[in-house]
Amino acid sequence: MSRRGVGIGAFANRTQTTQSWATHGANLRSTHTASLQTQLSVFQSLLHTFALEHSSTIKSNPTFRAEFARMCNTIGVDPLAARKEWPSRTGGGGSFWTQILGGDMNDFYFEVATRVVELCRETRSENGGLIGVEECRKRVGKGKAIGSGLEVSDDDILRAVRSLEPLGSGFSIVSVGSKKYIRSIPKELNTDQATVLEAIQVLGYVSVSMLRLNLKWEKARAQTVIDDLLADGLVWLDAQGPEKEYWSPQNLLDDSG
């Protein structure tokens, strides 16, 4: 009986100790969370002040603007997202850009996104709905000035495209090798297709025999991937040589400038 009493007492003590540690842990988590929220509020306040002081540079310098936007994202602030706690200068809610710079930057990204959509639709028959970000930036920047004559960077193009995603527009950013492309047709590239496009990026073109030799693919696999890319307009066929060669229209457009 005495042994059982000691055992029960020890069990009760362990239970009490466990509960005490659990309570202590919850208090620590609560304290840390409150501290982090306070630090985040301070960071956001400093970010707001910094943005107001350097608003002209943010507008005029695309590199500085890209770094500032990355800094915003690091602490959980999306410059293009509208939030209730970010009132615009004209009243009501607005994005972070609207709050600190008026509507100029919002209008800028809206116009960039509009031009990207128009360009993708115009060139879809040429490139199968896959256009390089660099080429897109060059072509979007031509003609009528955007906004107040602001220079457009690759980062601006990427942000404008990402701002379209909540609309279910089908526009997305895909990476092929070292390059980023805008995909304007809601269809994902599978692994084999991405591998072939990356090979074309390096070699200039591919053929079925090249894919079989370098990737150790069966003929049926190589031909199927090529046929799918050809059907989507992502590669062009050159049938003049002894073996059919497949070129990327996007690479040809990039090379021609």
Rank of each mutant, 00 (worst) to 15 (best):
M1F: 11
M1N: 08
M1Y: 13
M1Q: 06
M1H: 11
S2M: 12
G5H: 05
V6K: 02
G7A: 11
G9E: 08
N13V: 13
N13H: 00
Q16E: 00
T18R: 13
Q19F: 01
S20H: 09
W21F: 10
W21S: 00
A22I: 14
T23Q: 15
T23W: 13
G25N: 14
R29G: 11
T33N: 11
T33A: 09
Q37V: 04
S41M: 13
S41N: 14
F43C: 07
Q44I: 05
E53K: 09
H54F: 14
S55Y: 11
T57D: 03
I58F: 06
K59W: 13
P62M: 01
R65I: 05
A66D: 06
C72P: 03
N73F: 14
I75P: 03
I75V: 07
P79V: 13
A81K: 13
A82V: 13
E85F: 14
T90F: 07
T90K: 09
G91Y: 04
G91W: 06
G92V: 03
G92S: 09
G93D: 10
Q99S: 07
Q99D: 06
I100D: 03
D107T: 14
F110W: 07
E111K: 01
A113W: 04
T114N: 07
E118F: 04
E118K: 12
E118S: 08
E122G: 00
N127S: 07
I131Q: 10
E135M: 11
C136H: 03
R137Y: 06
R139Y: 06
R139M: 11
G141Q: 08
E151C: 07
S153I: 01
L158G: 00
A160E: 03
L164K: 02
E165N: 01
P166H: 05
G168T: 03
G168M: 04
G170D: 07
G170C: 05
F171G: 03
V174S: 02
S175I: 13
S178M: 14
Y181P: 01
S184M: 04
K187N: 10
N190D: 15
A199H: 10
L203Y: 07
G204R: 11
L211Y: 08
R212I: 15
K216E: 02
W217P: 01
W217R: 02
W217F: 02
R221E: 15
Q223F: 12
T224R: 15
T224H: 13
L230S: 02
A231R: 09
L237M: 12
D238E: 06
D238T: 04
A239R: 08
A239E: 15
P242F: 15
Y246W: 09
S248K: 04
P249Y: 05
N251M: 15
L252H: 12
L253H: 05
D254Q: 11
S256D: 15
